[in-house]
Design a protein around this nucleic acid. Sequence first.
RNA 1: GACCCGGUAGCUCAGUGGUAGAGCAUCUGACUUUUAAUCAGAGGGCCGCGGGUUCAAUCCCCGCCCGGGUCACCA
Length: 499
Amino acid sequence: MSSQDEQVAQRRSNLDALATLGVDVYPHAFERRHTVADLVDAYNARTHDELEAERPETVTSGRILAIRSFGKASFLAISDGRARIQVYIRQDSLPPLDFQIFKLLDIGDWIGVEGRLFRTKTNELTVWASRLHFLAKCLLPLPEKWHGLTDVEIRYRQRYLDLIVNAESRRVFETRGRVVSAVREFMTGRGYLEVETPMMQPIAGGALARPFVTHHNALDMPLYLRIAPELYLKRLTVGGLERVFEINRSFRNEGISTQHNPEFTMMEFYEAYADYQVLMRMTEELVATVARQSIGTDQIAFGDHRMSLTPPFARLSLRDAARAAASSTLGRAVSDGDLRNQECAAGLARALGVDIEQGEGAGKITCAIFEALCEDQLIQPTFVYDFPTEVSPLSKQKPGDPDTVERFELYIGGFEVANAFSELNDPAEQRRRFEDQLKERARGNVEAHAMDEDYIRALEYGLPPTAGEGVGIDRLVMLLTNSPSIRDVILFPLMRKRE
RNA sequence: GACCCGGUAGCUCAGUGGUAGAGCAUCUGACUUUUAAUCAGAGGGCCGCGGGUUCAAUCCCCGCCCGGGUCACCA
């Protein structure tokens, strides 16, 4: 019998023995007076003498994380997930049945404890158990107490184990919860209405990405999991909802990396009468406020870097960034005009060793140069603004410069955290952009945007001047929790099927 | 998809072309204020899977599976 089988058999036999004693081994509820965290909060500051004077009584519960046994006396460490407390067990302080129960406990079991609080000789806050209640069995051995669980594969596949033994992991997901709450509070506080739009869409639009495909049986209709909520949210702005946001799960059928999970969370919002300049100022406030509310500061450490999220953030035009990087790499002056000319831009890309595809336009090449040379250098928060029209089919052009749109991306820690633009609201121009995308698609670009006639019709009813933005919640949480991989901030990241 | 690294006891990790190792965990015994408890003993292994080389493979070679990283693609 393997060690695991042996340990499971032992735990099963302890469970059977409890049942034989007449213990309900799967009780339905337990009424506790305090959580473990309550006790620690309330009594951690009390001295030995204060506790002896007060003799506070409690009924609490948790999972056993350690057992130190001395024959007729023992110490347990129990946890409610938030805090730990010690339980002191003595044979002469417990009813005989409860001591029998104690002897059949294993590490990982859930128990309820009644008793009074005191401090041991070593000054540890402890519950002196007068009653023990069995709540549920842990049939499998837990990871080791000292090194814990470090195998990332098990941490992702069996997140519950990670959460039981790695306090840091729990802290990350608590922070994530606070980030989402803070984002919601920030938006609703500014008069935005939280809405929910379809995750299953007949046309997957709003971003340049490959969708997941599914099928509705009764309607016999192909459907796509959304790649973005964008087009639906703007339909709502057409409908007069002037400020809307959605905390949305979106899905993109693409590679997995430290910064990409096939399903990910964005906060996308639209504000009528605003343009991208307004959103830059709002985004600074959002990021700084959310940081302060979720981790208590807007000064963060990320890997080897320290970043300040205090507004204002740096601003850098995309072409200037690409131009400066290309100039310094090549040791010769590169002009704005060079980047706007397809032949010059393609030549630059070749000289810089940046991969581009045959027939790619100047705008796409400029972006490729930016991504290759600049992106991972942008550690401190930086708005990169003014993108080529070619790569932005839903954004509004700059006055007098049809090759450029009013769009920005926010970079922090070397990756993109937000993407925003003044929304294209001219239906005729939108149709032309979609048609360009169809040409892209015909060239074999599977990520090109699809035609969406209903969206154009919505624009024909009139979209007020509007700016919109998507903020990557997972990536924001990575920054605020100093997590190097997006999988560390997603409870159940997608993993290949096992067995 | 390409390349690099990894997979050995429940967990964390050593290790060697010749019968497989430690700590924690588990079991037995001692112990009524310990806290990585201690002490004495014991059990626990398809060394990821499948081929090959070899008298002999956990180790060398090839393929595959799973994971991590880098790149590519994307957000």
